[in-house]
Design a protein around this nucleic acid. Sequence first.
DNA 1: GTCTATACAGTGATAGAC
DNA 2: GTCTATCACTGTATAGAC
Lengths: 190, 190
Amino acid sequence: MTRLVFEKADAVPLVAEVFRELGFEGASLSRITERTGLGKGSLYHFFPGGKEEMAAAILADIDAWFVRHVFEPLEKGEPRAAIAQMWRSVNTYFRSGRRICLVGAFALDETRDRFAAPIHRYFARWVEALRRALMRAGVEGAAAGQFAEQTVAGIQGALVLARALNKNALFTRALTRLAQRLDAGIPTQP
Amino acid sequence: MTRLVFEKADAVPLVAEVFRELGFEGASLSRITERTGLGKGSLYHFFPGGKEEMAAAILADIDAWFVRHVFEPLEKGEPRAAIAQMWRSVNTYFRSGRRICLVGAFALDETRDRFAAPIHRYFARWVEALRRALMRAGVEGAAAGQFAEQTVAGIQGALVLARALNKNALFTRALTRLAQRLDAGIPTQP
DNA sequence: GTCTATACAGTGATAGAC
DNA sequence: GTCTATCACTGTATAGAC
């Protein structure tokens, strides 16, 4: 038996995967234990607040990943390069459609009410960062906002549809189409 | 106390709303009772198979609604008129973004595995009916399939984003944009 | 940090009176 | 058809040994 988990930071992604697969209510402690190998003792050691604290830590972890790989590049980097990086990051993160967006899933049921703030923050920052990047790339104001909303929603919808039809290829294909549509809206570099 | 429920057909939409709000795992019998006014006796009288049977009946009920108001018009009616009706029906059904798509929500977690068949059937029929309607309207084969996928995914994504940002207006706005994009892809009538 | 034992509320489900 | 009572079980959470 190799010791795989040494600290909370190692536990978070493991537990995250269980929440992703089972949802907040579906992820019971026994199933978390069974799928991660972490006993109740360890879980409550890392997360004294129980499931609520686990979910909060997971949302913070997801947010941090997106800040680093998506939001900050969009906010600070060269817009065209940042957008290109966004598509790569998103495809990687969601494992080409095999993985869902936990933040989006939480948004659908009453779980949203418990974590309203982090859920809102994640999506608001994504849409806003993309909108500003588009504007810096020369897209006109109102259009940029529409494109940004449409793109983030398109990604979420593709995750739903790919899982519903059990067809991962649909997700990557959808990303490609969304990327093309976005590119078509950006003025060519002078 | 007025008697509001007389038969199973009356119970289904009431229970459906609870599943929509709480998800399959979150919708415990006590909360279903509390929100619908139906006691356990009544619930098990209507649905001897318990929650599983409730969810199955709800999915069938949702499917029947879409068959009548969306799928069959797309399959049999004049394509342009059917597509216009689809947008109205969708906006009405999802209450301008205040209501989520239970089928889409089920698709995201392991609930999908329990109801894989009806979930797959619902989305596959929607995409296929729209694709054929677009082709009958003069859209070329490959493009029609892409448009159809994109549109259904766009609707699901808009529901996620609208709820995450707690901004219903976003949903109606997204529908308008999706409709415009679809129209732009359809050749003008000769 | 991880394990075992345990508390006790809430779960889905059944039975029987009305 | 609806109510109440009750079932066995699983849920989250805690305590204490190691």
